[in-house]
Design a protein around this nucleic acid. Structure first.
Length: 540
RNA sequence: GCGCUCGUAGCUCAGCGGAUUAGAGCAUCUGACUACGGAUCAGAAGGUCGGGGGUUCGAAUCCCUCCGAGCGCGCCA
């Protein structure tokens, strides 16, 4: 049990002691922003004051009295501050204990959690249409999806990642038309795909003059390119799920019949209309088109039925680009109508990313083909820098990225700052080995020598990681791990600067203690980096 | 017009009910040990948290409204 949990527990018993039911009081134990306010603090007195009918400060005094009679481990003093905060001042030796625990847990176990309790999650992301290469815009959130999968797995979820391939329908036909036009040496018409990649593909197409066949062939080729660029980023999907396959299997037909049986489908001019407004949608939605084909939505509903019912996942998480947010209400309505429950489908919207080149905003369009392939960016920056770049921006905020800046001045990317911290740790260990320093086992090391403010700050931040990981998983916010990494790396650089580990002027006992600290830091850093899919470098 | 998302330092972003100093990084300016890698460190400057109301002991954070931005509003995908 960590120190925070111990404090929470003691506070609960204090409430019981004072005749208050702890279940009725929602209080938090947090780490104050300023160290002057103690190692931990709680708002308990302020939150509970009302139900007790007392003012916060006088209730806080009673709580403090209890805490003085029943101190938590390492407690040095408790104080009441401001409107009624209770601040805990601890002997910093509790941090040494935490270091021992981190080292004992090791890279596999540290910052692991059972939050997910083996819940089966299917995480779908990216899913860009195979009508062209993956460009920076539609591939931007792929790193986010992959990091989220890693985070959820670390927290005990069983995650399967999936890419939904839209390999059927009008766009594939349009792609085929464009391909055939190019092969015949003609211009692609206005609503076709005009990118150069179509011309290139057309040179190797030796199939029949048949639109659908040509389209499918081109889509397959594009998919290979998409796979390659994701591969460059180190992203592998567990499953590539074909839209065509779900239509051909008859699953869409079955789903429609299911809705019809519930009386939720009416006929309108020969087309089937799903009464989604009954479940909160802003308008009813067509399931079939006038040519008899199913609409995209029908396929998508069947696909989600397949995820949550046929394949039996407990939860489906989709990451959509914000330009698809119009689908959210319809899909959720369908989940309600099918009695799956809208809450089992979770949709995360990735806001649009616009690209700047200097001060020029780059406009791109897939049809026109003037886009920047993600693979090119990865070639310039490398996978780690590309990942950190997109993980450093919040997913629910539209952002702009200056391509010139991130490629030309790539040193600005925080990834180098973080990786440099790791390289320095590795470098210290190399020096240790060169000098033939043999570190004793942890129980023989005098960790209480670690008392420098830099050392203590590092230890405090290190022990935050498990909480950060849980929080990031809960909030589906891998950025939190990226932020922790930046913060932690900064603290390490400061430590490195002020506290020499191996030097003639440093006592050997202190060297041992600091080497243990470095080992703990390296371990924590490696865990966090692996959660984001970023490489930990021994040298740079 | 309606809906969704979002406005925090010159730029990119944290903070998302708590402590009379709102935080980082980049850019700007000033400094740094004859020792483990200076891709570093220390410091300065920079903000009526889009405007206005409200709820609260307490609001950048919650609610309303206005302004501004992005996206969506097909039998497309």
């Amino acid at each position: 049990m960590g120190v925070r949990e111990a404090i929470e527990e003691t506070l609960s018993s204090a409430l019981v002691h004072l005749g208050v039911n702890p279940d009725h009081v929602q209080f938090v134990v947090e780490r104050p922003q300023r160290l002057e306010h103690g190692e931990f603090s709680t708002n308990l007195a302020m939150v509970a004051a009302k139900s007790v009918g007392e003012n916060p400060r006088s209730f806080a005094e009673k709580l403090c009295q209890y805490l003085m009679d029943n101190p938590v481990d390492y407690q040095e003093k408790v104080e009441i501050a401001g409107p009624g905060f209770i601040n805990f001042y601890l002997n910093y030796r509790y941090l040494h204990n935490e270091l021992i625990q981190v080292l004992a847990l090791g890279e596999d176990q540290f910052a692991k959690s059972n939050l997910g309790a083996h819940e089966k999650v299917i995480l779908e992301f990216c899913s860009a249409n195979p009508t062209g290469p993956l460009h920076v815009g539609n591939g931007w959130w792929a790193s986010y999806g992959d990091a989220l999968a890693r985070l959820l797995r670390r927290c005990g979820y069983q995650v399967s990642t999936e890419y939904y391939v839209n390999d059927t329908g009008g766009q594939i036909r349009r792609l085929g038309e464009s391909l055939l036009a190019r092969r015949a040496g003609k211009e692609v018409n206005e609503d076709g795909y005009q990118g150069e990649y179509v011309s290139v593909l057309s040179e190797t197409y030796d199939g029949p003059e048949e639109v659908l066949e040509a389209g499918k062939w081109a889509a397959e080729k594009n998919l290979e390119t998409i796979r390659d660029s994701l591969e460059k980023l180190g992203i592998h999907f567990n499953v590539w799920y074909s839209q065509a396959s779900i239509e051909e299997s008859g699953a869409v037909q079955e789903m429609v019949e299911l809705l019809e049986a519930k009386g939720l489908v009416v006929d309108q001019d020969g087309k089937k209309l799903f009464l989604s407004t009954k479940f909160g949608d802003s308008r009813d939605r067509f399931l079939t088109k006038s040519d008899g084909d199913f609409t995209y939505l029908a396929g998508d509903i069947a696909y989600h039925y397949n995820k949550l019912v046929i394949r039996g996942f407990d939860r489906a998480i989709d990451i959509f680009g914000a330009d698809h947010h119009g689908q959210v209400a319809s899909l959720k309505a369908a989940m309600e109508a099918l009695e799956i429950g809208a809450s089992r489908l979770e949709i995360i919207l990735g806001q649009m990313v616009s690209l700047l080149s200097g001060s020029d905003r780059l406009k791109f369009s897939k049809r026109k083909g003037n886009l920047i392939p993600l693979g090119d960016l990865v070639d310039d920056l490398g996978p780690s820098a590309t990942r950190i770049l997109s993980l450093s921006t919040s997913i629910d905020r539209a952002t702009s990225v200056d391509i010139d800046k991130v490629t030309a001045e790539s040193m600005d990317n925080p990834v180098y700052y973080i990786q440099y911290a790791h390289a320095r740790m590795a470098s210290i260990e190399r020096v240790r080995d060169q000098k033939g320093i043999i570190v004793p086992e942890i129980s023989k090391i005098n960790l209480s020598l670690l008392s420098h403010p830099r050392e203590l700050a590092l230890l405090r931040e290190m022990r935050m990681l498990p909480e950060i990981v849980e929080e990031a998983a809960k909030e589906r916010a891998p950025f939190k791990v990226a932020n922790w990494l930046k913060e932690f790396s900064g603290l390490f650089h400061s430590f490195y600067h002020d506290c020499y580990v191996i030097s003639d002027s440093v006592d050997l006992e202190l060297t041992y203690a600091r080497l243990a600290l470095v080992a703990g830091c390296k371990l924590a850093l490696r865990v966090a980096l692996s959660l984001l899919g970023v490489e930990a470098l021994e040298r740079m």
